[in-house]
């Protein structure tokens, strides 16, 4: 059975339409206009245990919304989501202990304290035994080359170093399913490569299922087994990465081609 199952899932946001100009803004105080914006539309897919799936699409295509529904942060407007056998929005303790969500633009590690303090807190929250904790921190800190920085206040670290700490924090309790939303956002090339290497090695060692969104095609090409392309909330491609790697064109060109044909279909 698939570890992630998404059936006919849609998400519609009710958005307040802000008018332009002073007069309209005053009128808006008494009479508001709302519009419905479909972020995800009738989405269907499944992911097998140990697979790394890349979720691709332009800004606003519905990638992050999809990940947030898979983790239970957002309630779908319609459809059914199952992750590791659980309905994510029920937020059962056993489910939460099996998943992790790395957000490239948000930090879960305390800025004012050394990362190791947050890791200790994470250890208690997820009931990680001491031996497993020490082994995991040491294994990941070595792999990401940040062992010497564990006791430095987080705000004093560079963006790349902070992201690496974020990864350690999210993988600390050996989750079964990991969702990564733009994990290399704004990082230099060296850090990007280190993170990709880490993700591949971690999957090979732990058979972890991962879903990654990224605008850096190298992240997808080097780490993923499969790609799902979203366009305006709809799935326009779902297939093996090998299908997109052709001798006559690069991976990036393949994706751009797909995006073009997807637009035409729509």
């Amino acid at each position: 059975m698939s570890i992630i199952q998404v059936e006919h899932v849609s998400k519609v946001y009710r958005v307040h339409e802000k008018p332009e100009g002073f007069r309209s803004a005053m009128k808006d105080l008494f009479q508001r206009r709302y519009i419905e914006k479909t972020a995800v539309d009738e989405l269907n897919f499944s992911v097998e245990q140990g697979e790394i799936v890349g979720l691709l699409g332009e800004n606003g295509a519905g990638k992050t919304t999809t990940l947030k529904m898979l983790t239970g942060i957002l309630y779908p407007t319609a459809g059914k989501v199952t992750v590791a056998g659980y309905c994510p929005t029920e937020r059962k303790k056993d489910f939460l202990k099996q998943i992790s969500f790395v957000m490239g633009n948000k930090s879960d590690v305390n800025w004012d304290l050394p990362a190791v303090d947050t890791f200790r807190y994470q250890q208690l929250i997820y009931d990680v035994p001491e031996v497993e904790f020490s082994e995991n921190v040491s294994y990941m800190a070595e792999l990401l080359e940040v062992k010497h920085l564990l006791k430095t206040q987080l705000r004093r670290l560079s963006l790349g170093e902070r992201m690496k700490m974020e990864l350690i924090n999210c993988f600390l309790y050996t989750p079964k399913v990991v969702f990564l939303d733009e994990p290399t956002l704004g990082l230099d090339l060296r850090s990007q490569i280190a993170i990709r290497t880490f993700l591949k090695k971690y999957r090979n060692d732990h058979k972890t299922t991962m879903m990654i969104t990224s605008h850096y095609m190298d992240d997808i090409e080097e780490t993923c087994d499969r790609v799902i392309l979203l366009q305006k909330g709809q799935k326009t491609f779902d297939g093996d990465i090998a299908e997109l790697k052709k001798p006559e064109m690069s991976f990036k060109e393949g994706i751009l081609n797909l995006m073009g044909s997807g637009e035409k279909q729509k």
Partner: peptide, 12 residues
């Protein structure tokens, strides 16, 4: 600011 999302994922 949306940061509630990350704490909703904690098993506590």
């Amino acid at each position: 600011n949306g940061s509630l999302g990350s704490v909703l994922l904690k098993p506590y």
